[in-house]
């Protein structure tokens, strides 16, 4: 792990997000430029990449809402209705729906630069007692409007950068290392990356099951434990397939940590987004 988070070469810099936090601590906005390296082979931004945008903006807003306590992400859901293609900019508009003693719940609307619906997301967080190692919320609230540096960008497709290895397409078994490039501030695989890994596993298995070019449009991600060691390994149970769509349940374990269970994901894939 590195002392400064995120390090110079890191996913959260290379995705070139920018942010704007509302003064009331109840709303935030973030933007992500869509580049080819973030897209599926059908030419639109991956669900997992958009989940990463949601995770980052949602985590900051929830930390603000839970102050002086701290938070742990419990779940993230994402449903897509529109394609975000290279050259476009996706805006995430996050709003606190509930900030209680034990939970924080957010809704995040995703639109493109023409106000067209790209999708909708929700997140919920468990509120925890603050530890000394947790960042100060003021630092989150007053964080810079972008983490990108002048050199930040993806030089190759996201899945290559993550080191995704497909082991068994029919069973959706893939392996992904936990690297400094994809860790969160606590040293584990970043939550949006976890969603991306699940997305790729579901897409791989559902394409094998249907022999059709399906892409994942929905993710219901339940976080159970951290992936600290790696590789992170997936298995997929295809739940059902229909005319131009399919659904799957994905389980992720940290294979390097006695296969500790990390995450359970329900995913839906459809033919394409328009």
């Amino acid at each position: 792990m590195t002392a400064v988070y995120p390090p110079d070469h890191h996913l959260l810099r290379d995705l070139r997000f920018s942010f704007e936090h509302g003064a009331d601590g109840r709303r935030s906005r973030a933007w992500m430029p869509v580049v080819r390296e973030l897209c599926t082979d059908l030419g639109h931004a991956r669900a997992g990449v958009l989940a990463t945008l949601v995770d980052v903006i949602g985590g900051g807003l929830a930390a603000s809402a839970a102050a002086p306590g701290w938070i742990a992400t419990a779940d993230l859901t994402l449903h897509l209705v529109g394609a975000a293609r290279p050259g476009s900019v996706v805006e995430a508009r996050a709003e606190v729906l509930r900030a209680g003693r034990t939970t924080v719940v957010l809704e995040v609307a995703l639109v493109d630069e023409h106000e067209r619906n790209v999708g909708i997301a929700t997140m919920s967080f468990a509120v925890l007692p603050r530890r000394e190692t947790n960042p100060e919320v003021d630092r989150v609230r007053d964080s810079p409007s972008t983490m990108a540096t002048a050199c930040s960008r993806l030089d190759r497709p996201l899945l290559e950068e993550l080191g995704v290895q497909v082991r068994d397409p029919a069973r959706g078994v893939i392996e992904v290392p936990v690297t400094d490039w994809s860790r969160n501030s606590m040293g584990s695989m970043q939550g949006g990356v976890v969603a991306t890994v699940a997305e790729v596993a579901a897409e791989t298995a559902l394409r094998a099951a249907t022999n059709k070019e399906l892409v994942v449009t929905d993710l219901q991600v339940t976080y159970l434990g951290f992936g600290r060691v790696g590789p992170v390994r997936t298995t997929v149970e295809a739940l059902g397939t229909g005319d131009g769509h399919g659904s799957a349940r994905v389980e992720l374990v940290d294979a390097g940590a006695e296969s500790r269970q990390m995450t359970v994901v329900h995913a839906v894939a459809t033919r394409d987004l328009t």
Binding site: L97, R98, N117, T122, T217, G244, S247, R271
Partner: peptide, 28 residues
């Protein structure tokens, strides 16, 4: 076919109303 439901607060008084807004359409 697919639901994500967040319970935000208890319903104690009523009537209780559910209002739907369409976000888009897909093949499913």
């Amino acid at each position: 076919t697919d639901v994500v439901l967040h319970f935000l607060a208890p319903n104690r008084v009523g009537p209780v109303r559910a209002s739907a807004r369409e976000l888009g359409r897909r093949t499913d």
